[in-house]
Design a protein around this nucleic acid. Structure first.
Lengths: 243, 243
DNA sequence: GAATTAATGTACCTAGTGGTATATTAAACT
DNA sequence: AGTTTAATATACCACTAGGTACATTAATTC
């Protein structure tokens, strides 16, 4: 008998019931309302979901293809059929995560109605909330950094997409300089860097912060507090000093 | 024949020549000047070094015991003899790393001679330089966060040691409040958090920052710039505003 | 209706995994 | 001198890794 464990496909379990319906004995039949493409898409999506879970938890190397296959409604064979290799699957997971957070990050700060300082505060809070709501993404980025961003470097899709829109931050800053509330002797990238660092760190290093300092960043109060902190830091850094 | 590859022990290679001298055909002899304890210590150190390298590169799960043994001057058997298990070895690596960075971080800011603001700037630059000089440590902490700080939570040694000395930061802040240069409506932990976030991020996310934004944080100019940034952010955040 | 093609299941492969059993050497102790 | 003990080498184990060969099913195309 084979070494790979038989997969425990229970019909009607958890996810994608519609998909299961198509799959009587693993093949699709004419009378069903979903066509082949839709099924293939559902299968891909299903595998991607299981893979995301596994890669987020263990990183690329330590993640197990066998476990991903077992946790999906599909099989290892299908995984390779759709994604070619472990690396290919990982790349797809990574790009999907960047897509997701990129879509949410389309910051629509009301630049006109707010004062520059208030607009900056609003801008600064966005990455914070975004990272908080996309912990999977944060963990994938951490894993990428541990492997020197190999996969990201190979992805055109990711390289060409900037998560935060610089131009909007720059506009706010220029307005602030014009009305005298902000310094003009800074680099915007430094401001951006400070905002992102604090926002990212609050999510990425939650575990060690709790283990070493005893601070739990996941409580509602602490989250509110950190959100305010990011804004405070950003605003005080760019504020024109009195003297 | 066994599955484990025969280890290629070349006498007189690279490291610990003194140790190699002891090890003719793998056993120590009476006429040598190092006693058993010293040899054991050297062996432990040698294994720890190879293990650090491997764990930093791959994280706990993906690191290979076989490769660690092969890269050390010792053997897998000795590894288990001295460290009991993969986990035990990892724990030892982690604690050694915390020890190392902790020793360097004994911040001796000249609290008396400097103004509070200047003392704060000097204090803020320390974790930055410390992380920069201990990239291994940073990567181990990242890996720990990815696995929810399992190992750190289990280590008394690490839990009981605070890397940065809070009290010194608090002293500076109190002096600043007293002489009117600093605000008193902040929490020191927020100040600490901002400093550490920016410092850590500059090292931990270097790879993705380069891949996505094209910024190389490793150049001398950029390092100098970031160092100044940490100080600027910390100082402007605590500075009493004029109005 | 025959041939083709996309999609799937089953069994299997080799290499490597963490960990151990057993034997052996030499120093330390009595 | 004989016994014990710390330190080391070799060979091995059961299991899992990523990946593939081959057969099979059903829909599509000619």
């Amino acid at each position: 008998m084979g070494q790979d464990k038989k997969q425990n496909i229970e019909p009607g379990s958890e996810r994608t019931v519609a998909l299961d319906r198509q799959r009587r004995s693993g093949r699709r039949s004419h009378s069903d309302e979903l066509d082949g493409e839709a099924i293939a898409r559902a299968t891909r999506h299903d595998i991607l979901q299981a893979a995301t879970h596994e890669f987020v938890k263990h990183g690329f190397e330590a993640a197990s293809i066998n476990k991903i296959a077992a946790q999906s409604q599909s099989s290892k064979r299908m995984l390779y059929y759709h994604f070619e290799s472990k690396r290919g699957l990982y790349q797809a997971v990574l790009e999907a995560a960047y897509e997701r957070v990129g879509r949410q990050a389309s910051s629509r700060v009301e630049e006109r109605t707010l004062s520059p300082m208030e607009a900056l505060r609003q801008y600064a809070e966005e990455p914070f909330l975004n990272f908080l709501n996309n912990e999977d993404f944060v963990r994938l980025v951490m894993a990428e950094n541990l492997s020197d961003a190999q996969a990201i470097s190979e992805s055109k899709l990711i390289r060409e997409r900037n998560i935060l829109n610089f131009s909007s931050l720059e506009k706010i800053w220029r307005r602030g300089c014009a009305d005298g509330s902000m310094r003009d002797d800074i680099r915007i990238i430094d401001l951006y860097f400070a905002i992102v660092s604090i926002s990212f760190h609050a999510v990425s290093n939650r575990a060690t912060l709790k283990a070493t300092l005893g601070v739990d960043m996941a409580t509602a109060e602490e989250i509110e507090h950190r959100r305010k902190l990011v804004g405070d830091v950003a605003c005080s850094y760019v504020a024109r000093t009195s003297k």
